[in-house]
Write a protein that binds this DNA or RNA. Sequence first.
RNA 1: GGUCGGUUGGCCGAGUGGCUAGGCAGCGGUCUGCAAAACCGCGUACGGCGGUUCGAAUCCGCCACCGACCUCCA
Length: 490
Amino acid sequence: MSSKLKIFNTLSKEKEIFKPSRAPHVGLYVCGPTVYGDPHLGHARPAITFDLLFRYLQHLGYKVRYVRNITDVGHLENDADDGDDKIAQKARLEKLEPMEIVQYYTERYHTYMNALNVKSPSIEPRASGHIIEQLAIVESIIDKGFAYESNGSVYFDVERYNKEYNYGILSGRVLEDLLRSTRALDGQSEKKSSFDFALWKKAAPSHIMRWPSKYSDGFPGWHLECTAMATRYLGKTFDIHGGGMDLLFPHHECEIAQSTVAHGQGPASYWMHNNMVTIEGQKMGKSLGNFITLEEFFSGGHKLLNKAWSPMTIRFFILQAHYRSTVDFSNEALLAAEKGLNRLMEGIERLNNISPGLRNDYNVDELELKCYDALNDDLNSPVLIAHLFDAVKAINQAYDGKLSFSKENLDKLRHLINLFVFELLGLKTINKNNADSDVLNGVLSLILNIRQEAKNNKDWVTSDKIRIGLASLGIEIKDGKDGASWEVKK
RNA sequence: GGUCGGUUGGCCGAGUGGCUAGGCAGCGGUCUGCAAAACCGCGUACGGCGGUUCGAAUCCGCCACCGACCUCCA
């Protein structure tokens, strides 16, 4: 079980060897979506990043409990006293019960994550289902003197906290600097300091999502939800907390503060943050209105998209960059990813048709080592993919008769490719539009036979007519040494 | 303004003090009736200016530009 996995810990800003505190069990918590809109490319990044981590940890033999929440309440448009809840706002807009919004977008999220072949987490709790746990933490923080009640709301006392602990331990922020450089916003009179954050908010009369508490009828603060749900399912401390880099401050910093007061220490040993997807160099996000939803990617229905991009192309595109780097969206980059993925998949298909030779010219053990090294080095998926392309090259050379695999090595390579490409990177063979139906296969095999006869008779008119005719139906003929094959092109 | 990060060949994107990922595009070739596809081969790039070093794209300094966060965001 002693793995050589190193992960970059945002807390220490260093790559550290991963040592779970209760091996073989691993607790992993990742901040999930606030379900008030369709999932976009930005949502795909953490989902895929931590899916890779989840898969790899499991492969290493860990029993992973992966918790990824659904935020269905408490995520405010802003933190002013009259800040509106994102879900409630959407519900009012569409004249729906908030939970209808939640249900709808949660299902949408699942649909698209599923398309991206992102595994379901072990537990997917909803914030609204954990009000009691959240209120218990509020009370505990008040009891310890680090939160105060104000007009029915409860706020975390950041300045008080910072006197005993370090508010900024994760983000590197210095509270004094923050306070100095920020002027007080209007309508924050309830708070002692502008950086205090809400643990519990009193609901305005018009507010539809509300729960009773001894402070007021209200709703929980966003930061508190993750602390409550993580504690409930993973305990007061657990191994890895993940999320997008944009959540680092204040969200994760606040989680640490809450947990430190309530439980005596920060929640996680390792903090992992994925970087952003950018578009023309700028973060793709709701605030800038420059996001493209996953549905739009899959259908091509967005003015910035030249065509539809399959879920696996999106997944591969994301995995081709390291998770801590920004990845810039463009049609050109996606096309490169699509073609690259195709090359990889065709190589793998070819691998099944290679016969072993007497010699062995390829060192599969070395490839295996390199692949593991790549993942162990802070989940370096782009390097892993580069090694896999080396294998594809060898496969193609073998296919060309320029290189030979021994039986043993061929089996080993097949196993290895299966492990890294399908199990760990989570790529799937591209669905060829039911192209594998027996009828279609039979018809095309007949047509290709006729074409071959025509070619044998040097009847180029007929053979070209077949080729062009099929092409117009979206079927591409590929002439090879051993006859022709076909593929349905979208 | 503060904090942090980035700047790599036509594009995307890794990485290391010397052994110069990978994908896409491009070029040349093989194959083919022609084409397509496929395969093979080819590209010596690391923002600028200094410094350290036998040697730096990789370390240090300065400058320029870009981005993220600074109580909405994956």
